[in-house]
Simulated scan of single mutants.
Amino acid sequence: MINDKVQAIILAAGKSTRFNTDSSKLVERICGKEMIVHTTSLLKKMHIPTTLVVGHKKELVEAAVKKHHPKGHFNFVHQTEQLGTGHALQCTKQAWTKEHILVMNGDTPLLSEDLLQRLIDKHVGTDAAMSFLVAHNVDPSIQGYGLVVNQNNQIKIIEEEHLEEEHDDLYNLNGGLYLLKRTFLEKYIDSLPRDKQSGEVYLTTLAEIASDNGLTISIVDAPFDEVRGVNTQRELWVAEQIKRSQIIDYWMKQGVRFSAAQNVHLDETVTIGNGTYIGNGVQLFGKTTIGKKCSICAFNILNNAKLGDNCLVRPHTIIKESAIGDNCMINSFTYIHEGSIIQNNCAVGSFNEICGEIISQNTKTSKKNERTFVAAFKTCADRSFSDTI
């Protein structure tokens, strides 16, 4: 398999300066998963062994990766000084074992398997020394991306801060993913110069070196959204909006209806049965599982909850780490705490609070004298749950 010849280096040592927090941007969550874990999960899915270069807040980054990948698929190299992307790659030389080295940033959570596979296939198929992604964007507010410039058949990548004049390639943005032949890297990695202004060593200089030496460079066009970096709080918000839209689009195709998809939050690990309705302002977190033909009405919050089929949850309800059986109705302003179990064919009255209780099947709860009591209740399996108010 072609991917057996590839290993990955994730650059994850940056200081997250523009994030203006005391943490690392790479552990910020996007749809329930740390930013860095979106990248590591993709590489693990593609069976590409990976080394992460860590530095700033390395203990947080390492902990996030190890939590999601406890079986040791990933290794870590510490960059003690952040001296640029080229220097970060130099720190990993001892880890190079494969024929091709994939280098990518840790803050690209929207990258797809299809795009990465196309880059690998083209790189190997053209026997290129270096391959990378180019994205096109005409939005002048987009900043922080170098330009890929082709002048007189000489290709180079110019960092944004070094742009001194207008270029015809103004919208050819460097996608920040590079695939390099190991023999090429071994020959030239130690000759990368330090930039006179910043003192950093830039990985992108390798494109100019390959071009100057007449070596093959392959370029793959990429949708800009897939290579979006996340350097600010606003860019984090944009990335999560895009990721959430992708998740909602997937569930729509599975037969789930969203009344106001733009106002719904759901994590990547949520599952929803077909024929289910999700109301305005609903928030679905963690490993929440919702069965078929349910109605989750407006402004409900479900966190690691499990719902059976044909359930109705009326507005302003919170269900946390609890299980609800089939054919159940949960009325408004109810809080179901951790460890609660509501069995099949039950109804819970409004303004209830259930704390770790087991509600037997075919029962109804209501509020009386500030306490919860259980009384016999006729099965609600024959109820119509089309009411989504």
Rank of each mutant, 00 (worst) to 15 (best):
M1C: 07
K5D: 02
K5M: 02
I9L: 08
A12W: 02
T17Y: 10
F19T: 07
D22Q: 14
S24P: 10
V27Q: 10
E28Y: 12
I30N: 12
G32K: 06
V37E: 11
V37Y: 03
T39F: 00
L43Y: 03
K44T: 13
M46E: 11
V54R: 04
L60W: 09
A63H: 06
V65T: 04
H69R: 01
P70K: 02
A88L: 05
C91R: 12
W96F: 13
K98V: 08
V103G: 01
D107P: 15
L110R: 12
E113S: 15
D114L: 13
L116C: 09
R118L: 07
R118C: 10
K122F: 00
H123Y: 04
V124I: 15
A128T: 01
A129K: 11
A129V: 04
M130K: 04
M130V: 13
V134R: 09
A135V: 02
H136E: 10
N137E: 07
D139T: 01
D139W: 01
I142E: 08
G144I: 00
N150P: 04
N150L: 12
N152K: 14
I155W: 12
E159P: 15
E159K: 15
E161I: 15
H162R: 15
H167G: 10
L170E: 14
N172S: 14
L173R: 13
G175Y: 07
L179K: 07
L179T: 12
R182V: 08
L185G: 07
K187Q: 13
S191Y: 06
G199M: 03
V201A: 03
T204H: 08
I209G: 10
V220D: 04
D221E: 11
E226D: 07
V227A: 05
V227F: 04
V230W: 00
N231P: 03
A239E: 08
Q241D: 14
I242R: 12
I248P: 11
I248G: 09
Y250W: 08
W251Q: 09
W251H: 14
V256P: 09
R257P: 03
R257G: 04
S259N: 08
A260D: 14
A260E: 14
Q262H: 15
V264R: 07
D267T: 08
T269K: 15
T269S: 15
V270A: 06
T271W: 07
T271C: 11
I272L: 02
I272A: 05
I272V: 11
T276L: 03
I278P: 09
G279A: 00
N280R: 12
N280Y: 11
G281M: 03
V282S: 01
V282E: 05
Q283F: 01
G291Q: 02
K292I: 06
S295Q: 05
S295F: 03
I296P: 03
F299G: 10
N300D: 14
I301C: 12
L307P: 07
G308Q: 02
D309F: 00
N310Y: 09
C311M: 01
L312A: 08
P315S: 00
H316C: 06
I318M: 10
I318H: 09
I318G: 02
D326A: 04
C328L: 03
S332H: 07
H337P: 00
H337D: 06
I342Y: 01
N344A: 05
V348T: 08
I354H: 02
G356I: 00
I359W: 00
I359S: 05
N362C: 06
K364L: 14
T365V: 10
T365F: 03
K368P: 11
T372D: 10
S384H: 05
D387F: 05
